[in-house]
Simulated scan of single mutants.
Amino acid sequence: MTSLFERLKTAAADAWQAYTHHEFINQLEAGTLPQAAFRHYLVQDYLFLLQFSRAYALAAYKGQTFADVAKGQAGLLASLEESELHVRLCAEWGISREEMAATPEHPATVAYTRYVLDTGMRGDLLDLHVALSPCVVGYSEIGKRLAPAIQQQPDHPYAEWISEYASEEVQQLAAEAIGYIDHLGERFLSEARFENLAQIFATATRMETAFWQMGLDLGQE
């Protein structure tokens, strides 16, 4: 039986391809991505993770069982831990945690994160976790696909980033997120809702693509 996540991904196939194979990712894989683009992306993604932490806190608040609350807590803790990768990488360029926090949010950051939060506020746990899923699952897919690049190029400039998202821990988080969406689907899904869920998923996926593009654009300024 096809999982709910796979149904959503299939419904947004073109958007998913554009997101997971964006030029930002292609250049990152090749090691040719301009450092300025990567640096701008990291700072904005640090700000992004603050808002995603809030979204997972909202998921805990909206939980109807202890298991639901635990899932929200796990996502919150994972986002906090992920932000430390950004702190470490930016420290190599002399950018402090305080400087990152003081950077204005780019419109692409605001649009994506507030969309997810608004979706969660208006809807239920299924709506919220569907909106969150392109990030956690997409990054794991990208990391796994890019992993051979750092084996072939020992001095790859983005090896730490790729290694993080190719890691077993991230792959496990993604698998759990997919499984949890299926679990929520069993509790809350009706076929009448699928079209709306597919729209939520596709919108969040397109916003991931816009986030990569933001990094490329800022790197050229």
Results as ranks from 00 to 15, higher is better:
residue 126 L to Y: 07
residue 99 E to N: 08
residue 99 E to V: 03
residue 147 A to L: 10
residue 185 G to L: 01
residue 144 K to L: 04
residue 186 E to D: 11
residue 98 E to L: 12
residue 163 S to G: 14
residue 127 D to T: 04
residue 178 I to P: 05
residue 171 Q to W: 01
residue 91 A to K: 09
residue 115 Y to V: 05
residue 188 F to Q: 02
residue 104 P to G: 07
residue 161 W to S: 03
residue 121 M to K: 12
residue 105 E to S: 10
residue 200 I to F: 06
residue 91 A to R: 06
residue 161 W to L: 04
residue 142 I to M: 08
residue 111 A to D: 12
residue 149 A to S: 15
residue 152 Q to Y: 08
residue 197 L to A: 06
residue 190 S to N: 05
residue 110 V to I: 15
residue 115 Y to S: 13
residue 186 E to P: 02
residue 184 L to R: 03
residue 101 A to H: 08
residue 193 R to F: 07
residue 165 Y to F: 13
residue 163 S to Q: 14
residue 186 E to N: 09
residue 132 L to P: 02
residue 195 E to N: 10
residue 106 H to T: 08
residue 106 H to I: 07
residue 122 R to T: 15
residue 175 A to R: 13
residue 100 M to L: 15
residue 111 A to E: 14
residue 144 K to C: 02
residue 91 A to P: 06
residue 185 G to I: 01
residue 165 Y to Q: 05
residue 155 D to H: 11
residue 148 P to T: 09
residue 137 V to H: 01
residue 147 A to W: 01
residue 154 P to C: 12
residue 194 F to T: 09
residue 163 S to L: 09
residue 153 Q to L: 12
residue 99 E to D: 12
residue 134 P to R: 00
residue 191 E to I: 05
residue 136 V to F: 09
residue 163 S to V: 06
residue 121 M to F: 14
residue 141 E to I: 02
residue 200 I to T: 15
residue 146 L to N: 03
residue 116 V to D: 02
residue 197 L to K: 02
residue 102 A to M: 10
residue 91 A to T: 09
residue 151 Q to V: 08
residue 187 R to G: 13
residue 192 A to N: 05
residue 177 A to Q: 13
residue 168 E to Q: 09
residue 169 E to F: 11
residue 147 A to D: 07
residue 103 T to Q: 15
residue 180 Y to G: 04
residue 176 E to A: 15
residue 195 E to T: 14
residue 173 L to E: 11
residue 182 D to L: 03
residue 189 L to C: 08
residue 128 L to R: 02
residue 136 V to L: 10
residue 149 A to E: 00
residue 198 A to W: 07
residue 141 E to G: 04
residue 139 Y to S: 03
residue 100 M to C: 07
residue 168 E to F: 04
residue 176 E to T: 14
residue 111 A to W: 01
residue 94 G to K: 11
residue 185 G to C: 02
residue 108 A to R: 07
residue 169 E to H: 13
residue 107 P to F: 09
residue 136 V to A: 04
residue 141 E to V: 10
residue 125 L to V: 10
residue 200 I to N: 00
residue 97 R to A: 11
residue 109 T to D: 00
residue 138 G to T: 06
residue 101 A to F: 13
residue 111 A to V: 09
residue 168 E to T: 10
residue 157 P to W: 11
residue 191 E to M: 00
